[in-house]
Design a protein around this nucleic acid. Structure first.
Length: 266
DNA sequence: GCCCAGGGAATCG
DNA sequence: CGATTCCATGGG
């Protein structure tokens, strides 16, 4: 029931769970409560150890979810050399890990994220789980694509997703029917995987990038949202994505958080 | 009332 | 093509 992951690198649980990549975590005191793969989890950091309390009693699962097998020290040391803006963004927010989240939950969550704010995104996702997930010892599971695919637009009215409801249904239908196959997307390169995801209504370049980064761990996926547009306009007007290298997605994570923490700069 | 929110589809020129 | 407009909803 209680696991510990000892880490030697720079890992920051607060920033990892609070950087906009996940929506089912909230903090009570020093403890983060979440729902991952249908299980409740409570976790906290103490003395360079991540303490995990969950019925999903599988150390390797959590090492994978929190991405402790990726060498962020190596990635960030190289990223710092690119320029001083990136270097500063990393210094102010060091310790972000890119979580390995479930593809379907990530697809659904980032469809809901479009033209929306993080607080309301969490609210809609919670409502989706409460209305259509399974109740299981205090938490609601994330409803599978098969369950959602059998709903109508009217059924989804209760979650108040607005114009995104039809997109959620289209995604659920394509996933549950196998038109969108997660194994195939894993095998495609980022560009082609993005094109495949964009065959779902409501998924464009930005949402596809988020899904590939957070749901398929493709670290070269580079989501450009309203905040990143401001960063690019100010510092990277003439650069293309190659400038950021093959870990552009990790760098994006830092620039995103940095820009939000310094709105005065933009 | 206005504008904005981790955008994308539809339409127009 | 690129640029503009509309989409639901809630908060500031």
């Amino acid at each position: 029931m209680s696991l510990k992951i000892k880490f030697c690198g720079n890992f920051n649980l607060d920033k990892t769970l609070n950087c906009g990549q996940c929506f089912r975590w909230y903090k009570v005191g020093d403890v983060w409560n979440g729902v991952v793969s249908g299980y409740a989890i409570n976790c906290w950091v103490d003395n360079s150890e991540l303490n995990i309390d969950s019925k999903l009693d599988d150390l390797n699962f959590w090492i994978n979810y929190f991405d402790f097998d990726t060498d962020y020290g190596f990635i960030l040391d190289n990223a710092r050399k690119i320029d001083t803006v990136i270097s500063r963004a990393i210094s102010e927010n060091s310790g972000i890990h890119v979580l390995r989240q479930e593809p379907w939950e990530t697809i659904c969550s980032f469809i809901i994220s479009q033209n929306n704010n993080i607080k309301r995104i969490s609210g809609i996702i919670n409502s989706l789980c409460k209305n259509f997930g399974k109740y299981k010892s205090g938490i609601y599971t994330f409803p599978g694509a098969d369950i959602i695919s059998r709903l109508s637009i009217d059924d989804l009215d209760v979650i108040k997703a607005g114009f995104r409801a039809k997109y959620i249904l289209n995604a659920a239908q394509k996933v549950s029917s196998g038109v969108i196959d997660f194994d195939k997307i894993h095998r495609l390169n980022t560009e082609n995987a993005s094109k495949k995801l964009q065959s779902i209504q409501g998924i464009g370049p930005k949402v596809a990038s988020c899904i590939l980064l957070y749901g398929f761990h493709k670290l070269d996926a580079f989501p450009i949202d309203t905040w990143m547009k401001k960063v690019i306009l100010k510092f990277y007007k003439n650069m293309d994505q190659d400038y950021f290298g093959k870990y552009a997605g990790v760098i994006q994570q830092y620039l995103f958080l940095w820009s939000r923490n310094h709105p005065d700069l933009f």
